[in-house]
Design a protein around this nucleic acid. Structure first.
Lengths: 183, 183
DNA sequence: GTCAAAATTGCAGCGGCTGCAAACTTTTAC
DNA sequence: GTAAAAGTTTGCAGCCGCTGCAATTTTGAC
């Protein structure tokens, strides 16, 4: 993973072959594919954070807390983890920005989390997973989170604060002028 | 494109080769790649709707209209076009649902529209394209639109109404219980 | 040291994708 | 009608991503 990130960061995705990577990592190309299904996977596809599932974490938030802050709280562990691997993630996001074909991959990575979010939101609100609202809540929080991350990559602000800002917009509604957001 | 959609719908993405497609379409495989950069592109990568850009359309909406309804109005032409090619899109969405690896592609397709939306929202609100709000507005409306589309693919409801519902949530805020939405 | 389980590797091969140059088709000018 | 120009399709050779399989090497328990 480290070798892949470094090489792609230096030369660009197209100018790095799996052979280059495996040579840099001192393994055979075949071994590379024993660990990563795709060349791209070596950039983002590290093992997903384990810990308790989104579902459990969201239901663990006291019932009185409104939905959006509850989701934020449920995500805080992931946010902390990302901030803990700051340099790794900043490189990843830089690589993604300079190789736009990778962005969908970032989305895909968030997707499994989103599916869990659908179930969790449905459980918390008493709706069915087939209802529009849980699905919408999952995709919107996912999108807001991703936006916050991309912004974090360029501004370097505190990630948690950025996510909180985006979630506030989600909660309050997408209104044209938010003084506290525009800065 | 038609041949690709049909074959992939029948057999699944993995069990259709470019050779199969080009044979079905009565062209050489090489010709296939003269028109589509990728096998996947033949599923979603038709030429993007032309017409006036999102930017122009959004600025054409009277200044008094709040942001979210304005974006909805600016998108209505695209929505109508998608509904006009209902069968094509339903097949596409069915194919995407049964081949999840394609979903990122749908996102990518919407992405260029989102970039335009960033610029347009910035212009309309007087903010910079580097500010958080326009970026957030673009990704959130994009996500809401995609959710509406996926739902449209299964329920068959009117697409415009579905988008309107999701946009209402966006505008009013992501609150736990919306009677009119949960149904 | 022995042996079984696990990790690594080579190899052969498919399929996606590209550059190039040849063949073919259509358009245009006269 | 003809011939040059312009555009389209095609074959070919070849790189690279990726996979199944079987052989080899490494690891670790005893």
């Amino acid at each position: 993973m480290a070798a892949t990130l470094r090489l792609v960061d230096e030369r660009g995705l197209e100018h790095v072959t799996v052979e280059d990577i495996s040579e840099a990592a001192d393994v055979s190309p075949r071994t590379f594919f024993n660990y990563f299904a795709t060349k791209d996977d070596a950039l983002l596809g590290g093992p997903l954070p384990h810990g308790p599932s989104m579902h459990d974490r969201l239901l663990a938030v006291p019932a009185g807390v409104p939905l959006v802050p509850a989701i934020l709280q449920a995500m805080s562990a992931d946010i902390a983890e990302i901030q803990g691997e700051r340099d790794l993630w900043l490189t990843r996001l830089r690589v993604i920005k300079s190789n736009p074909s990778l962005l969908p991959l970032l989305v895909a990575r968030g997707e499994c989390a989103e599916e869990e979010t659908v179930v969790a939101v449905a459980a918390r609100t008493g709706l069915s997973t087939d209802d529009l609202f849980p699905q919408l809540a999952a995709t919107l929080t996912g999108a807001a989170f991703r936006t916050a991350m991309m912004r974090w990559a360029t501004t370097g602000d505190n990630l948690y604060d950025l996510v909180r800002e985006t979630f506030e917009v989600l909660e309050k509604g997408l209104a044209p002028t938010h003084e506290e957001v525009t800065r």
